[in-house]
């Protein structure tokens, strides 16, 4: 089977997660608690939680997976295991997709638990289909994984890797339309926001919040996020070097 190495890599990453139950607990508990906090903050303010909730439901997983993946792959780079794998009959795609699958599965669990809480006890409602919110959250988490994979190539220490989160993710968050609707941004920033994947991720959940039926704009958003995901994975693969100085 051609994808044997990819599946083995995904299984290995999941096994590493299983040996680290505290990380798994944090992966689920941190967004769950944060969403609960948000629901509490916005309690009684008519539909605010229905507006912000779905947007943040997609953004928390992206941030968490970005951090986890960039640290995990940095460890592989500095610990010599990546170098060892690349002297073996391992394709770069096996490595990158193995990570994407493992963290994608983790993201599915995370998204199901967190959105279950949001739509249940926290009382969040959307006009569109609730399960599509889960799909977008998983897609965002995968995007976070892919971005973390490629960005970790720029870091040589874990301190640097952790700093890349505010450097790469927070500007996207500021321009994504959560704080100021994107059309109201200064012109240049509005243009820039078109280049950032998170703008589309946030817009997709906004579409679900406000429209009962699936809109074409929602589909476009999902396609664009998927495109960014594939591009970031491809970029991540090119950062894996078999030969180093």
């Amino acid at each position: 089977m051609i994808w044997r190495r990819m599946r083995a890599t995904a299984g290995r990453v999941l096994r590493q997660l299983r040996h680290d139950p505290r990380t798994v607990a944090l992966l689920v508990a941190v967004p769950a608690v944060l969403m609960g906090l948000l629901a509490w903050i916005l309690r009684g303010r008519s539909h605010d939680f229905d507006t912000f909730g779905p947007q943040l439901l997609g953004i928390f997983p992206l941030i968490v997976m970005f951090l986890v993946t960039s640290v995990a792959t940095l460890r592989e780079r500095t610990g010599g295991t990546l170098e060892r794998l690349l002297t073996m009959p391992m394709r770069k795609a096996d490595f990158v997709l193995g990570y994407a699958i493992a963290f994608g599965l983790a993201a599915i669990v995370q998204a199901l638990v967190v959105s279950g809480l949001c739509f249940g006890p926290y009382g969040m409602t959307v006009r569109g289909e609730a399960w599509l919110v889960v799909v977008v959250a998983v897609l965002d988490a995968l995007l976070g994984t892919a971005l973390g994979l490629s960005v970790s190539a720029l870091a040589t220490t874990e301190f640097q890797a952790v700093q890349f989160m505010p450097a790469f993710i927070l500007p996207q968050l500021l321009l994504s339309g959560i704080i100021v609707p994107r059309p109201e941004l200064p012109t240049v920033l509005h243009w820039v926001s078109y280049l950032l994947p998170m703008s589309y991720a946030v817009d997709a959940t906004q579409q679900l919040s406000t429209h009962a039926a699936v809109t074409t704009q929602f589909l476009m958003d999902v396609i664009v996020v998927g495109g960014f995901l594939v591009a970031a994975l491809a970029l991540g693969a090119t950062t894996l070097r078999r030969r180093t100085p």
Binding site: R5, A8, T9, R12, G80, P89
Partner: peptide, 24 residues
């Protein structure tokens, strides 16, 4: 490699099984 390059957060057998799959 001079510095052992295996996964510290896996068991010995899990490490070897993984690399065995990669090597066929």
């Amino acid at each position: 490699t001079q510095v052992p390059s295996v996964y510290g957060d896996l068991t010995v057998r899990e490490n070897l099984s993984y690399f065995a799959t990669i090597l066929g």
